[in-house]
Amino acid sequence: MDDKKAAILSEIPRLRRYARSLLRERDSADDLVQDCLERALVRLDNWQTGESPRRWLFTIMHHLFIDQMRKVNRRGEAAMLPLEAGEAQAAPADQVETIASREIMDALQAISPDRRAALVMVAIEGFSYAEAANILGVPAGTLMSRIARGREELRGLLDDTSRRRSIRIVEK
């Protein structure tokens, strides 16, 4: 196996984690990673040897993610809502989710894809602002405002969730 492929293989766990935070559902996340890897292998020449493939791969995956999210929005599918999709969506079979984990995963899915990607890129994946801005293809100021808005929105949703839970308890 050549070095390039070995280096790409070693990035798969991180790509999967990023995809999971973007899409939540395991199979869908792995489909996104697979799309990303396929595209990467076709464009192997675009990657400068000696450089970590991490940013290159994250950039490819992010483009795939954002392109598809825009298409989904254009179709207007977002207008159709379940009441309790969080309960309707099955949890990944092999992953025991604590209530706290499930709540934060649901809340992450509820913020806009642009903000979710920016926040996750920095808060979970540990990229610097400069790196993340580069991967997402936005100016640093835009990245910072997405992160700030994303965090505020996430916290607001978590506050709502705990309020809703206490209302349910009162109702019983």
Binding site: L23, E25, M69, E77, A78, D106
Partner: peptide, 12 residues
């Protein structure tokens, strides 16, 4: 599933 997630967001 991304589409479903958008719905989850609004549905929540």
């Amino acid at each position: 599933s991304a589409a479903a997630a958008v719905m989850l967001a609004l549905g929540g």
